[in-house]
């Protein structure tokens, strides 16, 4: 354990680009490494990815490990677990940070069990305990009703981080470092699951994870027709429409706009929650919003505990008047 050193960040890549979560990982990784007085390493695995090292340096890495192999073109768990096991065996980091993404959710637990260490998923806060030098890993539990702080005695101390929970550094393109190539050494016959197809279900307009304004509806909207009214307000504010879980489960809106623990985690400037009671699992997905505005007929609704502004009332009466007034104010 004593030979472990530094913070490694898994640099997740999609469509030939380093994802924002990779830069968020590097941002917190840099902080942790500085308080340990150690280095930050980025791990880039994929096909034709060596060119992304510069971005990782700019984001805070001191050293970049590159595993470039055509077999790594698409994420495939068996291949990626095997590669990451090899890389971690060579790099021996004290801390390993991955993202709580489609890939991280799948890869991190498998890698942890392969390495024989625990992993804390979906961390929202990471810090080095000054007394022990160990990583304090804070994550929401009980659907966001509580948070727990975990530590592990084994290295690497593995975590995944929630999207948008950590701040990336201001990119510094003058930062340079060493690029170390590692051979994937993959045996294609050990790859058991086969990716047959990847289907992108397009949503019209702005994606909720990119939108500055999100207008979201809950069970109380009652049907697909109600969401058309939310759409109108969203369009006016150049935002996107989202939903809590019940409208998705009922097929009123596509699953891809679900906000919450089992859907998207978003952090817009403005979040307008319409007829959403505010279950913990939903709040886990939107509590990063800068301002939450709630419209709900139940004054006791949990959403009002998180909201900055609100209206107690029936959305069917409130929303049209609100939208009309917003329109006037924006025109005026």
């Amino acid at each position: 354990m004593s030979e472990s050193s530094g913070v490694a960040v898994y640099g997740e890549i999609a469509d030939g680009k380093l994802l924002p979560i990779a830069l968020e990982g590097l941002g917190i990784g840099r902080k942790l490494a500085d308080s340990l007085g150690q280095e930050v390493a980025a791990v880039l695995a994929g096909s034709d990815v060596a060119g992304l090292a510069a971005g990782a340096f700019a984001g805070g890495a001191d050293r970049v490990y590159v595993v470039d192999d055509p077999l790594l073109k698409d994420y495939q768990p068996d291949a990626y677990v095997s590669v990451m096991e090899k890389v971690i065996g060579q790099v021996k980091p004290r801390v390993l940070i991955m993202g709580q993404t489609d890939v991280g959710r799948d890869l991190a637990p498998r890698l942890a069990f392969r390495l024989g260490v625990p992993v804390t998923m979906d961390c929202v806060e990471l810090a080095i305990d000054p007394a022990s030098g160990r990583l304090l890993q804070t994550k929401p539990v009980y659907g966001g009703n509580a948070q727990a702080v975990f530590t592990s005695d084994a290295d690497p101390q593995m975590v995944t981080i929630r999207t948008k929970a950590m701040t990336p550094l201001q990119p510094d393109n003058s930062r340079k470092g060493e690029v170390v190539k590692i051979a994937a050494g993959l045996d294609a016959s050990t790859i058991r699951t086969k990716l047959v197809d990847r289907v992108i279900e397009d949503v019209a307009g702005i994606r909720i994870e990119d939108a500055d304004v999100v207008v979201a509806g809950g069970r109380g909207i009652g049907g697909a027709e109600g969401f058309a009214q939310l759409e109108e307000l969203a369009r006016l504010l150049r935002g996107a429409v989202g939903a809590s879980r019940p409208p998705c489960d009922n097929g009123w809106v596509p699953d891809t706009v679900q906000i919450g623990l089992t859907g998207k985690i978003i952090a817009p400037e403005l979040y307008i929650a319409v007829a959403i009671s505010g279950s913990s699992q939903h709040l886990s997905g939107c509590s990063g919003a800068k301002t939450i505005v709630a419209i709900n007929k139940d004054p006791e609704a949990n959403i009002f505990r998180q909201a900055r502004f609100g209206v107690v009332g029936d959305w069917k009466k409130v929303l049209p008047a609100f939208t009309a007034r917003v329109k006037e104010l924006m025109a005026g």
Partner: peptide, 17 residues
């Protein structure tokens, strides 16, 4: 293999207007 050091309820100090 993972130690839980603390379990707590986050406090929301924000007031809704």
């Amino acid at each position: 293999r993972l130690k839980m050091n603390r379990l707590f309820q986050p406090v929301h100090e924000g007031k809704c207007e």
